[in-house]
Write a protein that binds this DNA or RNA. Structure first.
Lengths: 207, 207
DNA sequence: GCAAAAGTGTTGTTGGTACACCCATGC
DNA sequence: GCATGGGTGTACCAACAACACTTTTGC
């Protein structure tokens, strides 16, 4: 009797220097075989630990999709899996050690990685999630300015946003707390500092 | 070396008699072991064929989620899988042979099936999908009246909808075609007959 | 003629979008 | 004093929600 080989793949996102970036290990998504020992989550933990500078508990993680056969482009890759369970993980730029930033590549829908289909799917999911939840908390330090927040949104959505409308919207959602502090970046007027009320995933009330 | 056992589970939905129903095989979702032969899709085809009155190509199918360990309540079930890949399938009431309707049970969030977590998740996905796509085409005959359509929406969303607003909205989406025919049900005024412009999944323009 | 379901418009509210200038600071 | 990014308000438009009566048919 034949058993299938199952793999786990990670799509790691971060917004670095205003650009949406994905982590690669020699031009492929980090992946590992899974042999059914322990839970899937544990296996993902382990895989996560392989990424330099990334502790298990950091960031936001979510299962993406289970790819099989053609969809994942798997046949083309010898020694690969019959099915691949893909996860995406969000990691704040501030948690990435400076020396390792070159392993993060700016997302480009036209790139031709074997994993492009998975990455594209992950980006769509991220774009959706960021509009309907507070999930961006995982891409920012605990305290941040509204401009920082806006830059993260712009990087993910891939388009510029209007400053006034953005602030009105985000503040009206009531997911932020004004710390009343001020932070000065460079030689400009200091900006107000905010934090997310909660670091747990919350769906935004659209009513 | 140990290999994991992978299972496929099906959540089959239909709206029968104005109620959202799920198909059960002795109080459980239909499932089958998968040993990595052929693609996942083929395996789902096969499982689908086990459901009486359901041909492979009928209805709409989508992968739901891959459950492992605790999440799916699997440990409680002896002889079950390490991971279960769940799919949901939508099937029009008109395609279900009369004699087999008793295997379809009205969805109840309070029921205590071992598969309740999966089913609940599937219902949420369905509710979302039905609001942003034309996917209900798979739950109705080719031709139908607006009232029939509204009843399907109400069953899925679990709440009554306003007739005038519903019609305005659905017609403005431009996904329906008026056949100009009339259909008389019972002793009331005959209703206009519509069809979906396409039977392929289409995301609705929200602009 | 009456029961049953079909069909039809208006109004108020809300959320989205477009848009331009002054302010506080570092150098 | 000037360059840099921070911060603010209004007006228009589109989508949504609430709401009640007339029409056509079968019996």
């Amino acid at each position: 009797m034949k058993y299938q080989r199952t793999g786990i793949k990670l799509v790691l996102f971060s917004v670095i220097d205003g650009k949406l970036c994905v982590f690669f290990e020699n031009h492929m998504l980090p992946s590992v075989a899974w042999r059914g020992e322990g839970s899937l989550d544990q296996a993902v933990d382990e895989l996560t630990r392989r990424v330099p500078g990334l502790a298990t508990d950091q960031g936001y993680r979510e299962q993406l999709y289970t790819f099989s056969g053609v969809e994942a482009g798997l046949p083309a890759q010898a020694g690969e899996y019959d099915i691949a369970i893909a996860y995406f993980v969000l990691l704040g730029e501030h948690k990435i050690p400076q020396g390792l930033r070159d392993r993060w590549i700016a997302y480009d829908a036209r790139a031709n990685s074997t994993d492009l289909a998975i990455i594209t799917y992950a980006v769509q999911r991220l774009q959706w999630k960021v509009e309907y939840t507070n999930v961006v908390y995982s891409l920012l330090p605990q305290e941040f300015t509204l401009s920082q927040l806006q830059r993260v949104y712009e990087a993910i959505l891939g388009k510029p946003l209007d400053k006034r409308n953005f602030r009105k919207k985000i503040l009206s959602l009531g997911i932020l707390k004004d710390t009343k502090k001020k932070k000065s970046l460079g030689r400009a007027r200091p900006a107000g500092v905010y934090r997310f009320k909660t670091q747990k995933l919350t769906y935004v009330e659209i009513l």
